[in-house]
Design a protein around this nucleic acid. Structure first.
Lengths: 138, 138
DNA sequence: TCTTTGCACTTGCAAATCGCAAGCAAATAT
DNA sequence: ATATTTGCTTGCGATTTGCAAGTGCAAAGA
């Protein structure tokens, strides 16, 4: 079981203890905005994360209760990762990262999504959280 | 000059290229919510970051245009770091980290701040961004 | 003037983490 | 029976981190 060190009792610090690295939030992004749920799908992202890092981060996220791991419905040799409520709650953080990146860095965002976030951020957050919950039941 | 590698054109990824580590956002937190502006003040935080890491992150943040470095008004041997607009724009990200951490991890938040964020998040974001801009002029 | 103190880093080094390539075992597919 | 897919694990060199100590400069004190 993965144990994380808590550096202080500040909420920003404790959040970063879990989410503060270059890969963890990309996994959650893929689950929320690309509907991904398996190890193989996560590996195919543009950022090309290493297999050992992916395995490690999935274990941490499961240990921290942001996602659950279950045998896939179609294949016994496959696992399906789904977001818990604690995981669904990071959607607002990802949304803010999208907005900041889109504004200040050279990026490519799906134009529909960006417009949606700019005109009604709160509604969009609720929508993607609902979508994520629905996938968790599938 | 610090050069950052961009892993993809996804805005989440590019944001994490700059902000995605355990320390950078703590510096910005200290500037926004604790009014800190000097090397020595950053070192005094509860998380005890190493001096070389702090120097490196300040250089990256300056190179990336999130903050500016200037000789302090009172002492020529001191530097003052101030947020740019690009830096002020990360306030919403920090706010979401506070809310997630406060909800899901054992943390200690100033009760007034937490209530403020929960009852009127957008207003609170605007308020702390204004405060940060005022400090940047001081 | 000479010394001391405070501030902002820099340096050195062991330890931890990362990136990359390869290997492995169980479940399917052919 | 053999090959492929899937989800990891292992090894290892390179990079990054954490910790302690040192450096350079300006201002203050004696």
């Amino acid at each position: 079981m993965k144990v994380l060190k808590q550096r202080s009792t500040c909420p920003v610090s404790t959040s970063l203890d879990v989410l503060g690295d270059k890969w963890t939030l990309l996994i959650l992004r893929d689950m929320v905005f690309a509907g991904k749920s398996t190890y193989g799908q996560f590996l195919q992202s543009a950022e090309k994360m290493a297999t050992n890092i992916l395995a490690d981060r999935l274990a941490v996220l499961e240990a921290q209760g942001l996602l659950t791991k279950a045998v896939a419905a179609d294949k016994k040799s496959k696992f399906t990762y789904r977001l818990t409520e604690k995981g669904v709650d990071v959607v607002p953080i990802i949304v803010e990262l999208i907005l900041w990146g889109a504004k200040h860095c050279p990026t490519i965002v799906a134009p529909g999504l960006l417009a949606e976030l700019k005109t009604g951020k709160d509604a969009a957050v609720v929508k993607y959280q609902l979508l994520a919950r629905e996938q968790a039941l599938a």
